[in-house]
Write a protein that binds this DNA or RNA. Structure first.
Lengths: 344, 344
DNA sequence: CTGAAAGCGCTTACAG
DNA sequence: CTGAAAGCGCTTACAG
């Protein structure tokens, strides 16, 4: 085994003290330009890198962010929700852009996630991501807060909730989509997706949906709201249940694209044409949304922006700057699955 | 700011030495069962976690793996290749299963990736992932090897290559798929995807394709191999180029599903029916493959297994155990896009 | 601008 | 089974 170079080796070869090497490497203005250059050259030559554990231990911060991804326990073990996977990609980029490393961890198993990362000095702060049932997590979030652990979560904003939450404007998204469907002339509706406090983002989408319906004097049919989690299989089942109820509505708004994709298959298997016999809309604008046939009309979440806001807010929290919860607007993407004229 | 509990705090409260606390917390058999329990209880009460930086520094290993994801520089900035995103998910799981944390990093920018992680004691080893142009990287890999940095890469296996490589059996995959197409009665073929040393996995798929063709005495038409990288847009362009060449072949084998998805759109825009007028096959079996219409016949990569092998091999390397390069078989998934009878 | 010294919070020989 | 002590490789007051 080769032995790794340390700052002492460099100090020895440069004929300066170890402190000076440390300063030079961090480009402290306290160091003479020439010695600084000499030391940098030597470091490069010896393939020296500052030991992160040592510097973290000494300076008491890590320069890394931990992303904790909560998965729907019911979802297929091998598959991660594509929306979160894409968020993960954007967050990694955003973290790198801000000079932080990113530790990624799936959290369906560990019970101790609320403490494992920042408390163990693995990360300076946590990003919580997932269609998590924050009702269940609330206690742990409280505990995080008491321990002064820095965290931000991606999700809904609620009265009196613990910590900072960044999220998509689900209510307005549900509202906009429904208005669009109404403007297309549809009169009867269904909503596929859980709508209670255990799936708060879906609930907000549903509430926005209902608001648009009420404004247009369209009756809300309670049994046309059918629970589903964000998987194809769940969307498939929910759509089949809807079909069996008879009186198929003219338009079906799904709480997520994954649900919509499953519903699309269900309709097509029953010989029900989308959009001619039923209009179908999703939410998220994941990649598959424009690859189905018909292409899916949906509300686009701006994952890149969301990731940046998440990372930047967390960094602010780490530096004890004030951060507010905030909503990120969703954008209506009109394609083929609802009839009307596609705009993109 | 609250001050974090240290092992000394626990030692004080438990009335033992700090060494004993350290031992107890790592469940050393050297510690009396009762004191062990007392210390664990105290740790929980005080919300104590072992400081990773301190323990890593002292023990000289990190318990984390770094995943370096090389992206096709030409691909859309906001979008990560879905195949690698799914690998990422599986690798995170596999790392967790083996008790390691995972540091994730995209590497299109940094020049120093070959040293940044293990040398800085951020990780015990590196996983290299991406349709990377390993021709360009070879020098850096050599350097990694010289520094005795532990790494494994996901990719092709080549004569005299540096380090351990795990990958899909692309050659056999290309061969199998082509045999399947031939068995369906197709006589003329195109291959969409780069086939030179800069995209070694595509090249192997192409070589397997050619072997099957030769065995069936089917002429290989060089201008029917059209370069493409693994994006929809590139697949779209390649298919359009093929269409403009006239004499559309009966079957088009795409080097990846993303290419196939783009090609499908191109064919459909030109009113060319898939599979009636042209059969279309992909590779990877990414999620969208079964959502297109017609559903895509493809070669499935076993991402879960690949991730586990990758992680386990790297861990072996870290422990200086011998590791061999290995190929993971791909599986033919017959759906609709090539005609014939779907099997699943 | 530079150096000597302390100390971050652990793990691990060493001695008992 | 337990404790006292050294030391991992840095950063950072402190003194000059």
């Amino acid at each position: 085994m080769k032995t790794k170079a340390t700052s002492l080796d460099i100090a020895y070869q440069a004929g300066v003290s170890q402190s000076t090497v440390s300063r030079a490497l961090r480009n402290s203005p306290l160091v003479n330009e020439e010695t600084r250059k000499k030391i940098h050259a030597l470091a490069k030559e010896l393939n020296y890198k500052v030991d992160k554990n040592a510097s973290n231990l000494r300076s008491q911060h890590t320069g890394t962010l931990a992303l904790l991804l909560f998965e729907d326990p019911t979802s297929d073990d091998s598959m991660i929700n594509p929306f979160f996977l894409s968020m993960l990609g954007c967050i990694t980029r955003a973290a790198a852009k801000n000079g932080y490393d990113l530790l990624v961890s799936f959290q369906q198993l560990s019970e101790d996630w609320h403490a494992d990362y920042e408390d163990a000095s693995k990360a300076d702060g946590l990003i919580l991501l997932g269609y998590g049932d924050y009702v269940d997590y609330e206690d742990k979030l409280k505990q995080l807060n008491e321990q002064e652990t820095h965290f931000v979560r991606y999700g809904t904003i609620e009265e009196g909730q613990t910590g900072v939450s960044l999220g998509c404007d689900n209510f307005s998204g549900g509202y906009q989509m429904t208005q669009h469907l109404i403007s297309l002339g549809y009169q009867t509706f269904a909503f596929l997706g859980g709508a209670d406090e255990h799936c708060p983002e879906f609930k907000d989408r549903y509430l926005g949906h209902c608001k648009a319906l009420r404004e247009a004097n369209i009756k809300i049919v309670p049994h046309n709201q059918i629970d589903a989690i964000s998987t194809e299989g769940s969307g498939f089942s929910a759509a089949n249940q809807l079909i069996q109820q008879h009186n198929l509505p003219e338009a079906v708004f799904c709480a997520s694209d994954m649900i919509a994709v499953g519903a699309l298959t269900a309709f097509q298997k029953q010989g029900i044409n989308v959009p001619k016999q039923v209009a179908l809309a999703g939410f998220d604008d994941i990649q598959v949304a424009h690859l189905t046939s018909p292409e899916l009309t949906t509300m686009q979440q701006n994952t890149k922006l969301a990731a940046e806001v998440l990372v930047e807010s967390l960094i602010k929290k780490i530096h004890d700057l004030p951060v507010e919860s905030a909503l990120i607007p969703a954008k209506l993407i009109i394609r083929e699955s609802c009839g009307g004229k596609p705009n993109g």
